[in-house]
Amino acid sequence: MVEKSQTMNDRSDNTQNNFDVNVGLAEMLKGGAIMDVTTAEQAKIAEDAGACAVMALERIPADIRRDGGVARMSDPDMIQEIKDTVSIPVMAKCRIGHFAEAQVLQALEIDFIDESEVLTPADEANHIYKHEFKVPFVCGATNLGEALRRIGEGAAMMRTKGEAGSGNIVEAVRHMRALQDEMKRLTTLGKEQLMSVAKDLGAPYDLVCYVAEHGRLPVPNFSAGGIATPADAALVRQLGAEAVFVGSGIFKSDDPAARAAAIVKATTHFDDPEILLQVSRGLRPGMKGLEMSEIPEQERLAVRGW
């Protein structure tokens, strides 16, 4: 308890500094690929392929989807082993609203916590108040209102949600376009319209004003869910994603190391078709993937979050 109250005092003096440093780490991950890994060996493959961070989790989304049941924070020992293996930042997921899991991950000195819809939500009304933590959070969003609510709670990075574990890019594209369109629209509005927009979006007014002025979110925005090929990574980058999360797409493919390296290069050279062609050649088959109509509405992960 002593330790905790000390941290609280530091925060009251330093909330803004802490937020700036956490958004700063998100800035450093831009232009990179963050990969889901379930073992130390996979983490090593990801780092050797050029991943800028890894997401440590017990089961990748495709397997969570297949297995069913309640998906929770991963075993700390398994996360620790991955931390000990790689030098790049290590992220881990907690359930939506499960601040006790987040406290455990912070005590474990995880570099970024993903409050993730891929796990089974713990609170159906509230997300975690993230400004209370020293370590940064990333959250998912399908639209601008959801993104600004998460940033209002303290998220230092956003990721537009695709449908995790589907190997299908269509939802990632839908939500990236929705977010970009809404942001563009705000830049065309008069100041007198923004309070009404804040009301309609259910978003903090000051953040609505920021988007209207700058045409972008106040924190980096990455894309996650459904990325399975180098071209998928290039597509979401060209649509405005500043980096990509790749989950099942790598370790559900036939040659993870080669595919991981190809996706890293495609993320960097996203607007150079010659290089995209070159890195797309010679890859063994990717994950099979699911057509959206094969995923029942109640099993869709992207709709979780409020």
Binding site: E27, M28, L29, E47, G50, C52, V264, K265
Partner: peptide, 14 residues
Amino acid sequence: PGGESTTMSLLIQE
């Protein structure tokens, strides 16, 4: 710039 040095080192070489 800043970023991840392992990633940058690899991409510089490749």
